[in-house]
Amino acid sequence: MGGLADKRAAIAGAVAAGGLSEAEVESRVADLLAGCVEPETADLRRLLTEYRDLEALPADEADARLAEAGEVFAPEDDA
């Protein structure tokens, strides 16, 4: 799901703004997504909320959102 990857990249970008190394950023993002640590900023908290909301979407609803965004599905992808 492209939306999750995009949100994860945005979270990593927000974490990287703190001047951490690439390995530290990946570790921090993993901890944030797992809920092991709390986000430091309101922006990071918002990104995590959006990520978790996307994660929680049922498959049909996620497919409808992708279709609204212009994604094209092959006939074999139809239910």
Rank of each mutant, 00 (worst) to 15 (best):
G19L: 08
C36H: 14
A59C: 03
A67W: 06
A10R: 15
R65Q: 10
A17E: 15
R45Q: 09
E38F: 03
P58N: 12
G35C: 08
D43S: 03
D77V: 02
I11E: 04
L66G: 01
V25H: 04
A79L: 09
A12S: 14
E61S: 09
A62H: 08
D43M: 03
A16W: 04
R45S: 12
E24A: 15
A62C: 04
V29C: 06
P58A: 14
V25N: 02
A16P: 06
F73G: 06
L44C: 06
R52A: 09
L54Y: 09
G2R: 15
A34H: 03
V25T: 08
A9P: 00
V72H: 06
E38S: 14
E40P: 00
Y51W: 15
L57Y: 04
E40I: 02
P75Y: 08
A12L: 08
S27G: 13
L66A: 13
A56Y: 04
A69Q: 11
E50W: 06
D77P: 00
A17M: 10
E76D: 13
D53Y: 06
A17C: 05
G19V: 06
A59S: 11
A5Q: 11
L32P: 04
T41I: 03
R52N: 12
E55V: 07
P39V: 02
D31E: 15
L48T: 01
L57P: 02
L32R: 10
G13T: 01
R52L: 07
Y51H: 11
G2H: 11
E61Q: 15
D63F: 06
E68Y: 06
A10H: 09
T41V: 02
M1S: 12
L47Y: 00
T41N: 01
T49Y: 05
D77K: 09
E38M: 09
D53I: 07
A59D: 12
P75K: 07
F73W: 10
R52W: 07
G70M: 03
P39E: 02
L57I: 06
D63I: 08
E38L: 13
A69M: 08
E76V: 10
R28W: 01
A79K: 04
L66C: 02
R45M: 03
A9N: 10
E68N: 10
G19N: 05
P58W: 07
A16K: 15
R28I: 00
T49D: 10
L66M: 13
S27Q: 13
D43A: 08
R45E: 11
F73L: 11
L54A: 13
E26T: 07
D63W: 05
L33G: 02
A23L: 09
E38Y: 03
A23F: 03
G2E: 14
C36A: 14
L54N: 05
E68H: 07
